[in-house]
């Protein structure tokens, strides 16, 4: 007789089941790969779901050109190891206008990420895109379905979501519609960390503490990752032992001071910490408590 499955075994099986449904029912699926720890877990799950075949879809990185250097390095390595095609997209308009996080604030995220994602999906005609969002991250995500439909203009209508019963997913879509699929919806941050530990999933070294050049600005502890970082009068990079709980564009991602150099220590710090994960990201702060919900209606992943 089998054994009682642990919560991680059940979560893994659920995610694999979801990915196989998408591959069986969608015409042109893609995995959005942001190089963060959630993407890392999602990629590992995809490889497990289709083993010994490589995952039958490409990886898509909607890049802003402002990610940390170590993220680009890991991204290229993981694509090689998984045997998957890596597509990198840059919004040409954002590139041309020189949109950057220092001068353009919210417009940076909007153009590179929100618009960039829509353009990339349209360009390659993807009808289903896997994303690594989790329901425990934020209140509006707690209500999003695993299969989340977007109109032809990529908008999300939270009032008009399909009921999801048992583990039956209705993946049929109308012309022009596309689906965002969140296979790790039911994972928590701790689950993700523990899965990484148990499965030796490679992650960006920035998640571990190390001495790094930093600047304190607007309440965020920022890392000076390259020489594009414009220092204000009186600012000088200071070496601090820091790590990141979440990774995005380096000028928008706040670090925490930390000594956690191993996965166990990182998990320990995560569990004992008193601020929620996304607080390090400037993006959720717009529009008060409804920030993410508003962003999603506009098409942000």
């Amino acid at each position: 007789m089998g054994h009682a499955l642990t919560h991680l075994e059940r979560l893994e099986a659920e995610s694999i089941h979801i990915m196989r449904e998408v591959v069986a029912e969608a015409e042109r699926p893609v995995m959005l790969y942001s190089v963060g720890k959630d993407s890392a877990v999602m990629l590992r799950l995809a490889r497990k779901a289709f083993f010994p075949s490589p995952p039958p879809f490409p990886l898509l990185h909607v890049d802003t050109t402002w990610k940390f250097q170590e993220m680009y390095a890991l991204r290229d390595r993981m694509a090689r190891e998984s045997g998957m095609e890596l597509l990198v997209y840059h919004n040409p308009e954002a590139k041309e206008r020189g949109i950057n996080p220092f001068d353009h604030g919210a417009l940076h995220t909007d153009m590179w990420k929100t618009e960039g994602l829509k353009q990339a999906l349209d360009k390659w005609g993807f009808d289903a895109a896997f994303g690594g969002a989790r329901r425990d991250e934020e209140k509006s995500r707690a209500k999003e379905r695993i299969f989340s439909f977007r109109t032809a203009s990529h908008a999300w209508d939270p009032k008009n979501q399909r009921p999801e019963l048992w583990n039956l997913y209705n993946a049929r879509k109308n012309k022009g519609e596309s689906i965002r699929v969140f296979p790790i919806s039911n994972w928590t941050e701790l689950d993700v960390w523990q899965y990484i530990q148990l499965n030796d999933v490679p992650i960006v070294p920035l998640y571990f503490a190390a001495p790094r050049p930093t600047v304190k600005r607007d309440g965020l502890l920022l890392m000076v990752d390259d020489d594009r970082f414009p220092l204000k009068a009186g600012e000088a990079p200071e070496i601090r032992s820091i790590r990141f709980r979440t990774l995005g564009c380096y000028p928008l991602t706040g670090a925490v001071e930390s000594q956690a150099q191993t996965l166990s220590q990182v998990i320990q710090e995560t569990l004992l910490t008193t601020t929620s994960e996304r607080q390090g990201r400037a993006i959720d702060k717009d529009a008060g408590g409804a920030g993410m919900e508003k962003k999603k209606q506009e098409g942000y992943f």
Binding site: L5, T6, H7, L8, R10, L11, L190, Q194, Q268, L271
Partner: peptide, 11 residues
């Protein structure tokens, strides 16, 4: 020890 315990939790 905590992680070992957590790892064996059911859901």
């Amino acid at each position: 020890s905590y992680l070992e315990q957590h790892r064996h939790k059911t859901m």
